[in-house]
Simulated scan of single mutants.
Amino acid sequence: MIDLADQTSDLVTSKEARAGVGDSRALQRDAAAGRLVRIAHGAYVETGRWSSLLPSQRFVYRIAAAQRTAVRPLVFSHAAAAALWGLPWWGAPPGLVEVTDPAARSSRTHRLTRVHAQPLRDGDVVEHLGVRATVLGRTCADVLLDHPSLDATVVVDGALHAGETDPAGIAEFVEQRPAARAHARARRTLGFCEPGADSAGESVSRVLVHGFGFPAPVLQQPWRDTFGLIGFTDMWWPELGVIGEYDGDVKYLSDRWRRGRTPEQVVKDEKEREDRLRSLPEVRGFARWGTADLRSPERLRRILLAAGLEVGR
């Protein structure tokens, strides 16, 4: 596995320049000339490289910047640890890199980091990607306790989907946090999380469906016809005969989903797949939505109502 230093090998810092790797004043001049982007105090990346990165990748660079500019070792936690574990996040990642310091007297923020003054027990921390981070179960518990439920659902769904932890293990870490006023909310959110969600968009869709008062769907339902396996659908409401599919951009742009196909071929294959699903006698409605609909929930609600979903059924 490529460690964090290798992933961000083109990151340069003033701290390292002053130690003899380069000229810190040259970094400032290159930033002023537009050749470098200052991504954090004393940390720079080549402008073209930075502009090519996705928000999630930029967050990883900020984590690396925090590691390489710190005056003492850090333990990455919360959203930062979630990013290091490869867990999904909905929307833009947090602006600050979260770390946990049991020696801190109070939680505080610096230029680049948000320090959580919380205890760390044996088994809470592991070296991962060449840095110290909270273990997966503790990471999920921290997000459940200290971030909004929507963000926590996305992260925990992703962890459960990967099969590297389970609800009981996460719940144990939740209960270990002393005097956490958010315990009840964290337990409710954890109870809602499912391993069947295959993306952040699917997790957000499920949260919104629940908030609308629609019945809980079956996730990743397999479908077959006389020609064989059609595939798996994101959501299925058997009592109403409705299939729901979230179409994120990743389905058409990611190499993982395209498997060598062009975006045009993916669209064609999806149309053929939908036609086969609609032809099944038990399917009476079909809803398809995208990221823009999740950002305007009323649009999603109307799409689901038009497909045949009913509140309280």
Rank of each mutant, 00 (worst) to 15 (best):
R313V: 08
A19G: 12
C140Y: 08
V267F: 09
L54M: 09
F192Y: 11
A83M: 06
S254M: 05
D3H: 09
F76Y: 06
E239R: 15
L208M: 13
D275E: 14
P55T: 06
G169F: 00
R29T: 13
A79R: 03
M1N: 11
L300G: 03
T233F: 03
I2F: 09
R38Y: 05
F212R: 04
E270F: 09
G260Y: 07
R288F: 06
D10V: 02
A103R: 15
I2H: 12
R62T: 12
M1H: 14
F59E: 01
E46Q: 12
A292L: 12
V37F: 06
R114W: 11
T109A: 11
S296E: 15
W90P: 02
R121K: 10
G196A: 13
E264C: 00
L54W: 09
K251W: 14
A80E: 04
S279Q: 12
T8P: 12
P148C: 01
E264K: 08
D6T: 15
V21E: 15
T8N: 11
Q176S: 12
A65M: 08
F173A: 10
V174D: 00
T153Q: 13
S56E: 15
R278G: 08
E282G: 00
F227E: 13
L208S: 01
I39P: 05
S14G: 15
P148M: 00
D6G: 11
V126C: 09
C140L: 07
E202L: 03
A152D: 05
A197G: 04
R256L: 14
P297V: 05
D146H: 14
G244D: 08
S199T: 07
S254T: 04
A216G: 07
G290N: 07
Y61W: 15
T153S: 12
L53C: 06
R58K: 14
A186T: 07
T189E: 04
L74P: 02
D275R: 12
S149F: 02
S296G: 00
D142P: 09
G260L: 05
R259E: 15
A65Q: 11
T134F: 05
L277V: 09
V45E: 02
D249A: 13
A159K: 02
I63K: 00
G22P: 05
Q7S: 11
V37C: 07
V250T: 13
P178A: 02
R105N: 10
V267K: 01
L304Y: 06
R188A: 09
V99F: 03
A83W: 04
A292P: 01
A292N: 10
D151C: 06
H147K: 11
D198L: 07
D146V: 00
E270M: 10
Q221L: 05
V75I: 12
S24I: 00
G231H: 08
V75P: 01
S203M: 07
E16I: 00
R114F: 10
V250K: 11
V75S: 01
T8S: 10
T291I: 05
E46N: 09
P238F: 08
F232A: 00
